[in-house]
Design a protein around this nucleic acid. Structure first.
Lengths: 219, 219
DNA sequence: CCAGTATCGACTGTAAACAGTCGACTTATG
DNA sequence: CATAAGTCGACTGTTTACAGTCGATACTGG
């Protein structure tokens, strides 16, 4: 049994809370737990086979991410998004990602950045032959990479806190509409703009991308 | 006992979790719970006279707000901010608030907006004769109002999720440095720019305000 | 029949107890 | 003396039980 591989040494055992968080986030953003649905702690804890205390910790986080809304007496339900809310979410998303794009343009050495973004583009290209879900995942991964590459942890965290709302927006609009915003060419334009090092151009490209995306979602 | 006033009818009893959240947020952002301090659940729950379960829910939220960082084995400690992190926080803050400013310029009817902002300015003016804490509160209230007036709930929520980090940045720099960014005149400039309805000017004013603020904090 | 009161079930909020992991320290062994 | 094994305390993660609030329904009295 000698010679354990490095990945095994780095194994991370996920807590029940984290597992519940993931499962619930997926169930909500996929529509399985439908908008407006009242989440009853006792039911959910039985379904997930965890205690109510553990579940509550996960639910609190989802509430903070904007996926759940608290009704009277602390009752949590899956949030419903109307058109205005989707537009609002995309406006904030645009603000964060345009900051990311500008920040990347201002980096002294952009080579590793563009390499990583090209990899993310390749992944998007590969996903065009996959399922709608795969295309959405690769798209969101591209945008997350954009934020991550800035090295601004606060920016990445803010974006990730918005990710659930973004996913719900796509779900509300329907996956086909969502995917219509995920063309590889338009993302190549973003990378191209960043490549030029022109922060104003990069910002403008992102803002336009997000304007179009929001308009498509609410059409 | 007839004739209860409307405010009494609207009384909201805060849960222990919410009370703990407030108390902890204040203790952290004021420096009472100092950066790097390991928060031991059993100690804190005894101090606050609440159960560990209730405390955990509050701590989770503070972690998500960026005020605490999780170390090995789930141990939470008060986050320490270095200069880069402060700059990063202010960059994200600038992105959010400049979106707010641009959004306000695009509103069809800006009269009630400018009235509210002028009120916030008046409160800042009144606070100049008060304590440093009062000045910081009135400043943050001005900026929160900026975001709230847009009617974009996602934007307000994102800003509020950042507020703790903002407060900690000010605390790290020292209150005097923080207050140096809170001159009434500079905030009047922001309102003035929004008054013109020129979204580009308003955005630029905010970005400059935040650039200067960050530079002052890390100087 | 209607209004007031009582009861009960369905929750959420909270506390107390149990369980597991780790590091520091002590003890045993070669 | 150095190393390995054992023990224990200090936590965090989780479960179970208790407590309170509310709405819906049933009951009672005028």
């Amino acid at each position: 049994m000698a010679g354990l591989t490095a990945p095994l040494l780095g194994l991370e055992k996920k807590s029940l809370r984290e597992q519940a968080l993931s499962a619930l986030r997926t169930a909500i953003t996929s529509g399985e737990l439908e908008p407006g649905r009242h989440l009853v702690e006792t039911e959910l804890s039985e379904m997930l086979q965890i205690s109510r205390g553990t579940l509550r910790e996960a639910l609190r986080q989802l509430e903070q991410e904007g996926l759940l809304s608290a009704g009277p007496r602390g009752r949590l339900s899956v949030r419903h998004l109307d058109e205005k809310e989707i537009r609002d979410i995309y406006a904030v998303r645009a603000a964060l990602e345009s900051l990311a794009a500008r920040s990347l343009c201002e980096l002294p050495d952009r080579q590793h950045v563009t390499e990583s973004l090209h990899k993310a583009i390749d992944a998007m290209t590969a996903a065009t032959t996959g399922t709608l879900e795969e295309r959405i995942e690769s798209d969101l991964e591209f945008h997350r990479t954009l934020c991550r590459l800035t090295g601004n942890e606060t920016l990445l965290h803010s974006w990730e806190s918005l990710e659930g709302s973004i996913r719900m927006s796509i779900m509300f609009a329907g996956l086909e509409k969502g995917v219509s915003n995920m063309s590889v060419d338009r993302h190549k334009d973003i990378v191209g703009a960043i490549d030029t090092g022109d922060a104003t151009l990069a910002r403008k490209t992102i803002l336009e991308h997000m304007d179009t995306a929001a308009a498509n979602l609410v059409a």
